[in-house]
Simulated scan of single mutants.
Amino acid sequence: MKDRDKKNVFKVYDIVGDWFFENRSQSLMEKDHLDSLISKLPANARILDLGCGTGKPIYEYLIHKKFKVVGVDASEKMIGIAKKNFPSGEFYVQDMRELALNQKFDAIIAWHSFFHLQHPDQIEMFSNFKEFLFPNGMLLLTTGTEKTEVWSEINGKQLYHSSLSIEDYNELLKKNNFELINHTVNDVHCGGATVWLAKYLP
């Protein structure tokens, strides 16, 4: 792959997957945000984990809470590790931009995955969110705070991130019939994540 491939960030994870699994924090610092989502869901809710990676710790936490969780990731390596971690789990190698699932969900989570997409793809993703959510379904995702593109390094490989502005995301939510429930900017208790929780109201 090219050293800097904005369009296919998942290929980086195909290379660094084992390293990522060994080094990714398992502390579940996301717990407060996941619990906030869970409090809005019916019992036995169906959840789509977009960019599920190895399944640890988010997918794992959700299935322990007795939810039906489907994991999707574009990286074959990451899904391979996830299947080893959860042999009875439901996982698919798919690009979130081209989802092909004959299912709808009560919630979609795109935690530290959506922000690997370029600006036009992020905008288009809101159509996918709507397509795969039941009415009143919940959306939980992380973004940046300003319109920007950033390269970082992960185990010696270049990794692309991008963000629109907070104003852009508010407008996209409104335009696509999402009601904002909670928005936390640079959560110091969650690795500095900027987190959005919204409800789909068609």
Score class of each variant (00 low, 15 high):
Glu124Cys: 08
Met125Asn: 05
Met125Thr: 01
Phe126Asn: 08
Phe126Gly: 09
Ser127Trp: 00
Ser127Ile: 04
Ser127Glu: 14
Ser127Val: 06
Ser127Ala: 13
Asn128Trp: 00
Asn128Met: 11
Phe129Asp: 04
Phe129Ser: 09
Lys130His: 06
Glu131Cys: 10
Glu131Val: 08
Glu131Gln: 14
Phe132Ser: 10
Phe132Trp: 02
Leu133His: 07
Leu133Ile: 09
Phe134His: 11
Pro135Gln: 08
Pro135Val: 05
Asn136Leu: 07
Asn136Gln: 10
Asn136Glu: 06
Asn136Ser: 08
Asn136Thr: 08
Gly137Ser: 05
Gly137His: 04
Met138Gln: 05
Met138Thr: 02
Met138Ala: 05
Met138Pro: 01
Leu139Asp: 01
Leu139Trp: 00
Leu139Gly: 03
Leu140Arg: 04
Leu140Gly: 03
Leu140Tyr: 04
Leu140Lys: 04
Leu140Asp: 02
Leu141Met: 09
Leu141Val: 05
Leu141Arg: 04
Leu141Phe: 10
Thr142His: 01
Thr142Arg: 00
Thr143Glu: 00
Thr143Asp: 03
Thr143Ser: 06
Thr143Trp: 00
Thr143Arg: 00
Gly144Lys: 01
Gly144Ala: 08
Gly144Thr: 04
Gly144Asn: 06
Thr145Arg: 08
Glu146Val: 12
Glu146His: 13
Glu146Phe: 11
Lys147Ala: 05
Lys147Gly: 02
Lys147Cys: 03
Lys147Asp: 01
Thr148Tyr: 04
Thr148Leu: 01
Thr148Ile: 10
Val150Phe: 04
Trp151Tyr: 09
Trp151Val: 11
Trp151Asn: 06
Trp151Pro: 06
Trp151Cys: 05
Ser152Trp: 07
Glu153Thr: 15
Glu153Gly: 13
Ile154Cys: 15
Ile154Met: 15
Ile154Val: 15
Ile154Ala: 15
Asn155Gln: 14
Asn155Glu: 13
Asn155Trp: 11
Gly156Leu: 11
Gly156Phe: 10
Gly156Cys: 12
Gly156Met: 12
Lys157Tyr: 12
Lys157Gln: 14
Lys157Met: 13
Lys157His: 15
Lys157Ala: 10
Gln158Phe: 12
Gln158Asp: 15
Gln158Met: 13
Gln158Leu: 12
Leu159Trp: 06
Leu159Ala: 11
Leu159Ile: 14
His161Cys: 09
His161Gly: 09
